[in-house]
Structure formats: structure tokens, C-alpha cells
Nucleic acid binder design. Structure first.
Lengths: 170, 170
DNA sequence: CACGAATGCTTGAAACCTAAACTATTTAGC
DNA sequence: GCTAAATAGTTTAGGTTTCAAGCATTCGTG
């Protein structure tokens, strides 16, 4: 029998006794993490079941779809916020399946440009349509005004986090 | 049935008339994901540098800290929202380092209870103090009222996602 | 032009993570 | 009591992920 991750108990459960003082921020972070994890797990599950693929593969294709001129491995790495070694392996698998192609840059022999193949574009279009619907479905319990407010507050949160990143101050 | 029929758009018309239309939800999700990823990456980085440990290890210790009576592997798996096979390996490493101990349940010979050792408790206390400060630091750019509003909206989002999970309706 | 620094990518080791198959034990129904 | 189903954990195979080290190429500066 497969594992059932849906039947979980929150990470934000206990944590009631609070001596120090930053428990508020911690609770906020745990709730943020819970939301993301819930959505992510569900999307992974559906991607696997419906398209026999994984989230990182989908994400890489999505990056290339948005950049018709192609992206270098380094650019993909930065946009996906993962290590470059990670992208190397991911791209290798996708290339082997004929979903993307790589071409050495004519101006810089170190760099390679990744591009969707026709098949990759077709395949991603199918996945993307479904994906968009899934997200809408999961967010359907929020009123449009709530979604807008949440979006704005997350923008503020993003700015706050960026400001607190190490090296960001320098 | 709605009071004002002229202003009512049912699901069919909405689907028929629009190209896709769920870009809002998608943007919201991507921003949520970005926030979480940013924080998570930074916490991972600091845990590694300051304590030479990883986020999943920290999370497992945190679960046990909150449950002084101990937890079975399955309970940990559900609370951390990861597979049970995952917890097996994680717990094995932590036990080998003497941070946690496992004991077969006296009432159920299948189950094992995990507990922090004295050393594990000491070590986690150090990490936890730092971790709490890091989160507060990253969230420092949000006013208390913003944090409260965000927390509430994320609660709504969590409920929405839960309602949309497969099998959750059954 | 030379050469040290920076950049783009790959590789290797180790950890993480999942889904699925498996073993052992307990529970429920008859 | 017996047996089928459910439950607790482990194992296996394969993808994901990081960090650190390494190679090749380009750039900046003298």
C-alpha cells in the first residue's frame, strides 16, 4: 500500500508555551511552509499520475517556455533557485527524452543554450493547461479579494526576506 | 439560486467564454512558492554553516522536542509531511549520532518510539534559539499588523487547499 | 600579450525524498 | 480461534539536491 501523505497533522500544532518573544514570526513561517508543502505535494502527485513526470522537470520546461530564445544552464539555475549541478542532470534527462535541446553558444564556448523542442513545447502545453487548472482548484476557496490581499502581503514578505538575506546588505 | 440572475455567471459560461483565465491564482501560487523557497534556502544555508546540520534533521528534532513522551516513526512522518521510508533513514542517522534514541513500544511490537537523548535536547536547544532569531530577522520587514493579516490569510489558503486535495472530499 | 580572476558547466559524494513492494504484527469479523 | 484487512517499519530503485572540487574558457589588467 502506498504511503498516504494527505492524512498528516500540522507542523504548527504545539508551540503553545512561549517564553521568549519571536513566536509570532515562527508561527507565520510554519504556516507559510505548510501551505506551500501542501500544494507542492499535491501538484507532484498529480504530475506523476497524469503525466508521469516530476515537478523539477515541469519547472525547467516552464522556464524555457517563457524564454523562446532559450536560456543557458546558469540562467535556468538562477531562475529556478537551484544549484547549477542540479540543472546539469535535469537537463541531461530532458534532452535524452527529446523534450529540450542544447546548443553551444556561438559567442562563448563555455555556455550552452537550452531550448524546447517541438515535442517539448507540445508536451509542456498539455501539462501546463492541467497545472493551471489544478492551482485554480486549490485556491478556489479564496475570494478574489482575499487572493489579491494575499498576493500583496506575500510581496511585502518577499521584500522583507530579501532584505534579510546574508550578503544582501552589502 | 442567486438573487440577481443578470449578474450571475455560472461555471459553463465562464469556461466557455474564457481562453484559460486562471492566471491570477497561478501568480499567487508562484509568489507563495518564491517566498517559501527564499526562506528555506537561507535557513538551510545557516543551519549548515552554523551547526553543520540540515533542515530535515532540524525538523525531526523539533518534532521530538515538542513531544517529550516521544513519537513513533509514523507520527513523525505524518507531522513532517514526508514518507515513512524517509523517516527511517533520517532517524537512523540521528540515532547513530546519539541525538535520538528508539525504543520498541511495549504494547505494540511493530511500533518504535523515538525520543531525544539528553545530548539531542541540548543540541536542539542551541539550534532552535538561533533558528527562531533567523526567522524573526527575515520577517522583520513586516509590521505586526501585516504579519497578523498574512497569518490569517494563509490560514484561509490552507483551508482552501485542504478542501481541494484529492481524497480529502471523501 | 600574459596571467590571475571570474565565469559556465560538469563531476562526485552524500544526503534527501518518493512510490512501491515487502515483512512483521495487530485488529476486526465471523 | 481463524483469517482477512489494516497498520508500523524497512527496503529498493530511481530521481532530486547540495556542496565542493575540477576543467575549460573568457575577461580584466598590466
Amino acid at each position: 500500500m502506498p504511503d498516504d501523505l494527505t492524512r498528516h497533522v500540522d507542523a504548527e500544532t504545539a508551540l503553545a508555551g512561549a517564553p521568549p518573544g519571536h513566536k509570532d514570526e515562527l508561527r507565520l513561517w510554519l504556516r507559510l511552509l505548510t501551505c506551500t508543502t501542501l500544494v507542492e505535494a499535491e501538484i507532484r502527485r498529480r504530475l506523476r499520475r497524469e503525466f508521469d513526470t516530476t515537478l523539477p522537470r515541469f519547472d525547467l520546461l516552464a522556464q524555457l517556455e517563457r524564454a523562446p530564445a532559450g536560456l543557458t544552464l546558469g540562467e535556468v539555475s538562477r531562475r529556478m533557485m537551484v544549484s547549477n549541478g542540479n540543472v546539469t542532470g535535469l537537463a541531461a534527462r530532458l534532452e535524452e527524452e527529446g523534450l529540450i535541446e542544447r546548443r553551444v553558444s556561438p559567442t562563448d564556448r563555455r555556455a550552452q543554450t537550452l531550448r524546447l523542442t517541438a515535442r517539448g513545447r507540445r508536451e509542456f502545453a498539455r501539462q501546463s493547461r492541467a497545472h493551471e487548472g489544478w492551482i485554480a482548484e486549490l485556491m478556489a476557496g479564496l475570494a478574489p479579494a482575499e487572493r489579491a490581499a494575499l498576493h500583496a502581503l506575500l510581496g511585502r514578505a518577499k521584500a522583507s526576506v530579501r532584505a534579510g538575506l546574508e550578503g544582501g546588505e552589502a
